[in-house]
Amino acid sequence: MSSDKSGFEPRIVAFLCNWCSYTGADLAGTARMKYPANVRTIRVMCSGRVDAQFVMKAFAEGADAVLISGCHTPSDCHYQEGNFKALRRYYLLKKMLPQFGIEPERLRLEWISAAEGDKFQEVCTEYTEQIKKLGPSPVKKGVKNG
């Protein structure tokens, strides 16, 4: 799958935890650091709030990739354990996604603190490039059954 490198603009859904990563993204914004518009951010209270259902639904609805970002492990999560839940869900999903035909690289987990606007920018830029190379999600719009 390396088709359509020309003009393919991936849609990346990013779930960002309120306390660290979202603030980091905000910082990138206020500091006028440019990051690709391909990344659509969704603020959640904690990375541990990201139900694996959200990830599967994002893929079903045509996301080319999903990024989950929370506070640094082991001890930065505002709710203490949330980022560990995210870590475990991430590995479980990564093992399962290929069984549904989705490349595991389409899911990414990052720890980005409130002060790391630059890291947020780098991750978004680099991940967008990576997904551009990988090509569009194999899920055709609307998930056709039958």
Partner: peptide, 30 residues
């Protein structure tokens, strides 16, 4: 997917390696 969310609360693991080692013991997750 809901089960993945629930199961993740129960792992005795906090690092990438520990988590991966437990995930490795699950055959055929889907």
């Amino acid at each position: 997917a809901k089960f993945i969310s629930a199961l993740a609360s129960l792992f005795d693991a906090k690092t990438d390696e520990e988590v991966q080692a437990i995930v490795d013991t699950i055959q055929d997750p889907a």
